[in-house]
Design a protein around this nucleic acid. Structure first.
Lengths: 342, 342
DNA sequence: CTGAAAGCGCTTACAG
DNA sequence: CTGAAAGCGCTTACAG
């Protein structure tokens, strides 16, 4: 069996209490005892049972990242980057990160997030929770966490209501910047390949597209707005349809980079020069848009910042700080200095 | 305070033991007691303290992914995908995944992996360990784990020796397939932009390049071999240098995709048509090579498979199965059916 | 079928 | 400064 504190205290010839004191660097132990204990621990290769310690202290120094995703196993590259920065930030504060993914259903029933959260809050394994979800979280689902004052932060989604911490990206502002960039370049016929309208971020990006055109006294044209599904192929199809319009648009704002790439491919296949004949801007900042020909401007999501701040906010909250709501700005990157970048 | 089993047993009017039995679905309890306990638990919103349970049972159902990385916070996209599949596979087996990253140094001293592993094995938090490292792991570092029979698996690296589990990708075989593809297309002047030679996988890819050329009676030319650093820009520079050779190569095998992309960019800027004038093949299967113009063939790393198998091997081992050494085949993807793919 | 008791490995008042 | 004792929340023999 493994070495316990009892073994150490016995070998050192002191009591359990003394051994514990020494190994936790508490003062009030004679140098002589200290040495004996340290020596014994060393000899036996003693390592504390963290489980037992956590049970007593009621602290585990561990937080849980709980990701709700549509298709099991399909955390996207997006999440990969986020996890990286969460992990780094969490480690930095001497916390540990545990992860779990949950799908839409559990045992054939729609997953009850409310109960899932309660389980997490009560099982005493975690001191805080980071929530990531492909579909909207409602206040009622996290209400219990608020009531019990269990630290949590929702990432990448705004949830209104008292006592909720969240951090999201300014999709509206980022889009606005993209559209203004196109307008400033002289474009008036700006189309939008939007995302699915049940997607919160797609909604915001769409709203910003509409508002920014109108603010600039460019009238909206229904035929310039086409809905895609965030996949590359849907961008391609959308572009083909846009090219049938007369006159066809001179600029495209795609709600994400993959659709922008699809649009680029279709445009090139139809003999257009990008960006001379057609400007295309996407959203997300995935790596691939740096390497298309030409590289595609994109509104970059500050994922590193997102993860870092989420971790910081959560741990602050664990330590007694207040809950916060944060919207992170994001900016257009036009790759003017690409060759310094990678 | 939170609700404990004691509270439940009190409310139900039974002993602790009975309550425990009921809530663990053990039989040998009267229906009447069962109902009372269930009812009380429900009313109080009881959730077991997993910490206490784990302490007794000596089982946590949790495994740790320990990643050693050069630059703190720089788990690449590669790891993102791997984590995804690990997480999915681990969840599927009703285990949990905890993660920690460690750098090369700790408190200014080179990190002592041996001790780090012992800590992990002894703290009783984890039943198994997945090791991922940017730099080579030696047998001596994991020897203690072997000796203590603590389940672990090394991912993405071969470590010889008794009692070690690892899973790696067949970099040699994958490269061979890439080179053969180029030879079959008629190329004889095949250059190699290789990776840093202190990198194990770069070594294997280089070795396969050499062997395959020689097997096909193509003599090696030193000036066709240039070392890069796995970054895009180094592929670009390498390509520029290769274009100065007379005759210049008609095909490039780059040791990774980023350098392949850099090579592509340099080639295009120098007026070459790819693939008509120059064939370029990379390694890794990152998403970006699908969207360059033209898309670049690449040897795809089966990351999903890698993560899944790693998790399976580890959990098998935890459950008493044997340790295994696995090399995963990987194959060249030439994107013949790209438009069905994304 | 049921309850009193011991114990998992540790920490922390409390006397001395 | 030190040790005996209680206790964290639970599970599991053991009597009855």
């Amino acid at each position: 069996m493994s070495v316990t504190l009892k073994d150490v205290s016995k070998l050192a010839g002191v009591s359990l209490a003394t051994a514990s004191l020494v190994l936790n660097n508490q003062k009030g132990v004679s140098e002589k005892s200290r040495l004996k204990v340290l020596d014994a621990a060393q000899k036996l290769g003693y390592r504390p049972n963290i489980l037992a310690r956590s049970l007593i202290k009621g602290k585990t120094n561990t937080v849980l990242l709980c990701a709700f995703i549509k298709e099991q196993g399909k955390l996207s590259a997006f999440y990969g980057e986020l996890i990286n920065s969460l992990l780094t930030a969490v480690s930095y504060q001497e916390f540990y990160l545990q992860m779990v993914v949950k799908g839409e259903f559990y045992n054939g029933h729609p997953l009850d997030k409310r109960t899932a959260f309660l389980d997490i809050a009560h099982n005493r394994l975690f001191e805080g929770l980071i929530i990531l979800s492909h579909w909207p979280i409602s206040y009622s689902e996290v209400g219990d966490l608020v009531k019990e004052n269990f630290p949590f932060v929702i990432v990448n989604q705004k949830v209104d209501g008292e006592g909720v911490s969240y951090i999201d990206i300014d999709h509206y502002g980022g889009t606005k910047e993209a559209i203004n960039y196109l307008i400033k370049k002289g474009h008036r016929r700006i189309a939008h390949i939007r995302g699915p309208m049940d997607h919160l971020h797609a909604q915001e990006r769409y709203r910003a597209y509409v508002d920014t055109l109108l603010e600039n006294e460019i009238s909206l044209k229904k035929e310039y707005i086409i809905e895609g599904n965030f996949r590359r192929l849907s961008g391609r199809t959308a572009m083909e349809r846009l090219l049938e319009k007369k006159p066809y648009p001179t600029a495209i704002y795609a709600a994400n980079d993959k659709m922008a790439i699809g649009a680029l491919q279709a445009a090139k296949e139809n003999g257009l020069n990008v960006p001379q004949d057609l400007d295309i801007v996407g959203f997300d900042g995935i790596e691939a848009v740096k390497y298309t020909d030409p590289p595609l401007p994109t509104v970059e999501q500050p994922l590193e910042e997102l993860g870092k701040l989420a971790a910081t906010m959560l741990i602050e909250n664990i330590k007694g700080g207040d809950r916060r709501k944060v919207i992170l700005p994001c900016r257009l990157d036009t790759w003017d200095n690409l060759n310094q970048k990678t």
